[in-house]
Amino acid sequence: MKELLQVQNVKKTFKISAKQQKIQKTKERIKVAVDHLSFTAYQGEVFGLLGSNGAGKTTTLRMMAALITPDEGDVVVDGTSVVKSPAEVRGKIGFLTSELKLEEFFTPNYLFDFFAELHGVEKEAAVKRKRELFEKFQISQFAEVKVANLSTGMKQKVSLVISIVHDPDIIIFDEPTNGLDVLTARVVTDFLLELKEQGKTIVVSTHIFSLIEKICDRVGIIIDGKMAVCDTLEHLTAGKSLEERFFDIYAERAGESYEK
């Protein structure tokens, strides 16, 4: 299988402001968010990143999406380096995270056209894709309603659709079902499976075990910015539930801090 996405020994640190030092009760001035992390996603597979809050999942995904640059290491997306050609990488991937908001003044219809134009999608192709995606997610009903007037679930559907406006082969989703009601979460999960069937390479970050079990081929567990385990779902669980295995690994790696 083709290695479509390679995360190569990436490290990312952030400066901690005096205010944050007080809040976090630490004297450290630098926080290592991701510590020499590596993994590979193969063409057509769904790779799940599992970890607790603050483990470094989102930072890893942001580096993969060329939104931030690694301090060390590199991410190679379909042969293109994030460090050397970030704009090219952005054109190859679809990235969805809760941090990315939609301008509330505009309608889903306008935003789809706008982002299609930014991604250089031909007009005819954009019209066709909009029709397909809007139908699939039932966005047509509120396509002309301003984002400000949409519910959280509707906004998430629009965000998802806009993130894949250019039909990318590599899709990176950060907590795609977070904050959604069960119905919308189901729609998103089904869509991820559909994308998998289409042969798309997907990297999903989540802390919802059932989502990982349902859609992922391989899983990486991140603890304190480091890759604790990276294996196929079958090997990793070895008869146990993913949740059980996660806590076993977490207790083993995080040690005292977890046991407390």
């Binding site: 704009a87 990235f95 908001k101 250089g120």
Partner: peptide
């Protein structure tokens, strides 16, 4: 305003220069 609302980040993940 766009920075505050997080909408500029949505623009920054596009391949636009």
């Amino acid at each position: 305003g766009e920075k505050e609302r997080g909408t500029i980040a949505t623009l920054l993940v596009t391949p636009m220069k």
